[in-house]
């Protein structure tokens, strides 16, 4: 997993809670990397799980909620740091539609070793979109946070339903988004 996911997570923890809590979860998680992350490095995805679990224990918020909150936070960072990635997209649907073909392609160009999830758009009407998240990992909650933040970025309220699909190793989740 790319280092940016870790550095942004720790920034969020420091910002929203405190550097002391960040330090605490870093110590408690007993991370192979020692918790020294750089955005351009690559680390075991298990470490983010450990960190989120530790945070959950410390502040007593469920892990899925934390992942969703982090997803939303992460989207804000993406928009601020890589505004060009949104390109000419005029709506959340546009961004989601172009996720695999545009954004992930850019990521792969910079980081050929990046392991990215797939977002397949199954159906799209002006008011509704169905897409399937598919990953070797289990970060559907993170994805949901990102999707919600994306809607908010365009001033759109999305009613989101999730359905977990059968998957061999990893996860497949159907997101149905309805524009309110």
């Amino acid at each position: 997993m790319k280092g940016i996911v870790f550095t942004q997570f720790l920034e969020m923890v420091e910002e929203r809670y405190s550097p002391a809590i960040a330090d605490r979860i870093l110590l408690a998680a007993q991370l192979p990397s020692g918790g020294a992350y750089t955005a351009v490095g690559t680390y075991d995805h298990g470490e983010i799980w450990s960190l989120v679990c530790e945070l959950s224990k410390v502040i007593d918020v469920p892990v899925p909620d934390l992942f969703r909150a982090y997803g939303e936070y992460l989207f804000g960072h993406f928009v601020a740091a890589y505004p060009h990635c949104l390109g000419s997209a005029a709506s959340a649907f546009d961004v989601l539609q172009g996720l695999d073909s545009m954004i992930h392609r850019e990521v792969c160009r910079l980081y050929p070793d990046a392991e990215l999830p797939r977002f397949d758009v199954i159906e799209r009407t002006p008011h509704q979109m169905t897409l399937i998240y598919q990953s070797a990992r289990h970060f559907a909650d993170l994805a949901e946070g990102l999707i919600r933040a994306c809607g908010r970025h365009f001033g759109q309220t999305l009613a989101l339903t999730r359905e977990t699909l059968a998957a061999e190793g990893g996860s497949r989740v159907r997101f149905t988004l309805a524009l309110q």
């Binding site: 550097p19 870093l26 110590l27 020294a36 992350y37 750089t38 955005a39 351009v40």
Partner: peptide, 22 residues
């Protein structure tokens, strides 16, 4: 607090070295 800070600095230093190495 000092210890936290020191650990933090240590992590940042290692991260920087990693980044430099990269």
């Amino acid at each position: 607090e000092m210890e936290i800070l020191l650990r933090r600095v240590e992590r940042e230093r290692r991260a920087r070295k990693q980044a430099e190495q990269l």
